[in-house]
Design a protein around this nucleic acid. Sequence first.
DNA 1: CGCTGCGTTGGTAACGTTATGAATAACGCA
DNA 2: TGCGTTATTCATAACGTTACCAACGCAGCG
Lengths: 334, 334
Amino acid sequence: MARRPTLKDISELANVSEMTASRVLRGKGEASAATRERVLEAAKSVGYVPNRIAGSLSSKSVDLVGVVVPSISSFVFAEVLTGLSNVLKTTAMQPVFGVSDYDLETEETVIREMLSWQPKGLVVAGLEHTPAARKMMQNAGIPIVEIMDVDGDPVDLNVGVSHRRAGYETGKAILQRGYKRLGFIGTKYPLDHRAAKRFQGFQQALAEAGVILADQELYTGGSTLLLGRQLTEKLLERTPDLDVIYYSSDTMSCGGLMHCIMNEISVPDQLGLAGFNGLDLRHGMPMLTATMNAYRFEIGKRAAQLILEHEQSDYRAVRQVIEFKPDVELGDTL
Amino acid sequence: MARRPTLKDISELANVSEMTASRVLRGKGEASAATRERVLEAAKSVGYVPNRIAGSLSSKSVDLVGVVVPSISSFVFAEVLTGLSNVLKTTAMQPVFGVSDYDLETEETVIREMLSWQPKGLVVAGLEHTPAARKMMQNAGIPIVEIMDVDGDPVDLNVGVSHRRAGYETGKAILQRGYKRLGFIGTKYPLDHRAAKRFQGFQQALAEAGVILADQELYTGGSTLLLGRQLTEKLLERTPDLDVIYYSSDTMSCGGLMHCIMNEISVPDQLGLAGFNGLDLRHGMPMLTATMNAYRFEIGKRAAQLILEHEQSDYRAVRQVIEFKPDVELGDTL
DNA sequence: CGCTGCGTTGGTAACGTTATGAATAACGCA
DNA sequence: TGCGTTATTCATAACGTTACCAACGCAGCG
């Protein structure tokens, strides 16, 4: 009653060796119809569930893929995970998730935790890690895919977009549309390295055009519509002559749009708005906000595919970079 | 070079037994400062990562909690996972996720997969499962927490809200506000059992008041703002005299609100709107839509806590139900 | 100086499964 | 009927770690 049934129980019930039972249950190798029948019957009767831990230890192979992301509450990573999971579910692989909370020390712990399960591959968000984490990943002997960002020095495989480029291109597009008084609303670094890179790229575009950022508003924590509304209001109160705002996320820029609608600020004439991510949310809004797609779903998919492609026993890092190069989408708000 | 270092390598490097090395690395039991030093040094020098598979097999205990949800792209489950992960990260437990895609056969496979890792507990969304899945969960000998929904017969532990009640209460609230011509926009069952239950509860409230649903629009797939806008438009075109619409999700009702704003339909006078979930999104909108909170975050938290509380070697199902009973929040749109 | 006790350390045997190659049974053919 | 083959089946040894208990060495004490 108490103990979980093991292969041994099955084999005794079916009057075969453990080995034969194991083969029948896994569908590997030959077995006579009669034996197969008896084993299957025995397994069913006791509700046998194999012990993968023992199996993996013995076969030295695990059907797990580790995934480490900074957060799961954000849409961004939820979509990456969806892409990943869509690919993996066509195989026997199972994803194991860990959350780093935008903290590199936590990330190191989570990565160690993941690797200790000897997964077939590891997907990690971002290119910034502690030296110890980097070393572990280098020595892991499995494909490591760093995702989202390509601005940096990857350990092994790398799939993402250039956030520096995203900020730069958006900055240029804004200037090209004739805006002069630029504002910025974004997260406080150094928590979010990618947001910081977008800001740097943005600043570079301004610098090249000899334009100075008129004002900015920084926040910590998640992006929400409400916060976007509130910070837009605050920024405009302080600097009423802004004619465009660049947000570090579409959620925030849509919040900004809400503020404009509620206060009859005409977009994009009186105020232009631009965000980042290419979120679906934008399509429900009264106006389509400007953005640059972050290819979240595709990145997840590609990361999973890379791991499947590189699955082999003695793996060595290959340092392949896959960069998606989205264009600025002006929408109706620039 | 090729092989991953094992405890044996460490023990040879540090000139101690494997047992001593193991104890030092786990911080269990005593060891002299000198030995500890040498072992730690050796482990660091070769970048030792323990093999949890072997460890778990030996100690017969795994620090995993299985989680099976229908989808991760939806906010709803992302928040549940956040709550869960927030609690688990204060412990040594690690969540392992599986996605069932709203398909019971897939769910059965995923549950079997999860259980084969001998997790400390299993969290599953919903109360509807295949008979085989139910049986596996009953025999698992670990705490099983069915979440989201309490309208049904749980295998063991159960945390959620009554969706039947949610639909019923919302229906009553709508009628109480004096609305006469009621419309409904929701997902096509039987995919989403919970949405179906909300609809049933809603219908019951109408029936009790002798009111007949004036019109409805059903859809499959995820809820988005855009779809909410489109279906609202379609429904109103077909039945222009509707004075209120109940949506099976806040995402959809917010989309409906967008439609109203863009078409100068006055809310809540000309048209009332009500949704479900208590999504954060609502707070960024020009008006706060009516809703009923689904306690997503709390459910995740509570599920994790239940598993921690019931963690013990020979576990027997206890059949405890924890029901959250949110009130209808009228917001500005009813 | 020998004995007791405690702080350390090590040896051995699991844990439940699978890989491997050997053993057995069954079969076909001459 | 006997032998070579092939189809099944099995016994054994891992896999890397931890639990359990025995053994060791040293300090303190009589």
